[in-house]
Amino acid sequence: MDNDIKINIKDLNLFIGNKHILKNINISIPNKKLTVILGPSGCGKTTLLKTLNRLTDLYPEVKVKGNIFIDNEDILHTNKNITEIRKNMGLLSQQPYPLPMNIFRNVTYGLRISGRRNRKILKNRVEHYLKQVNLWDEVKDRLKDSASQLSIGQQQRLCLARGLAVDPEIILADEPTSALDPISSQTIENEFLTFNGNYTIIVVTHSLRQAKRIADYVIFMYLGEVIEQNSADEFFNNPKEEKTKEYLKGIFN
């Protein structure tokens, strides 16, 4: 398989009850690049993201068929520990869900459950990751405060830091800026741009403008199908499919 492909999705179909939600998805996601998933509301972007780290296992009526290869390992049919697979992917959900503990503990949670308890190292890591997401200056004096007291934008950045702290290779972000004001959105966006090259990042977004600003690679979905996927340049300047052209013109959104 191509060395520059991190995730390879083959003939993925997903059903919820008898609704066909994801239809014959075939995608190759480039390694250490930023891939944007675009598409109108309800087309299955969140579902696709959750399938990637098998959070779909939590939902009663979901059935998944097909293959998802991550580093040549089919994570849908593997004997490997799902926990290990998930640990390799940081998830930033649409709404932030801070853990019910203080800010410090939120960042170190992943490290602590994998057995790293050295106080000095933990402190060091907290500072490192909070700086990385641009939150350190705002919270350095209140690390012992409950994370739920932070503003939504701060919580979103905290969740990002928490995800980075487990040292994943892949970052999944589901409309990470949709609930945020322009400035916080900007902060998060810039962070993705800084990370780019070190992580394989997949960002779901509604916003064409945001996609244009950050994407290396674009996947366009419509009603559960992948309509087009291409490098950002090609996708925006030279779209192949009729649907893509309409979408780019803003005919539907």
Binding site: L55, L58, L91, L99, I113
Partner: peptide, 21 residues
């Protein structure tokens, strides 16, 4: 359920999610 998803994606097992979160 988002909290469970958050906990699992950080690499917790279900039991850790139960007792720690």
């Amino acid at each position: 359920i988002g909290l469970m998803e958050a906990s699992l994606s950080l690499g917790s097992t279900r039991s850790e999610t139960a007792y720690k979160i």
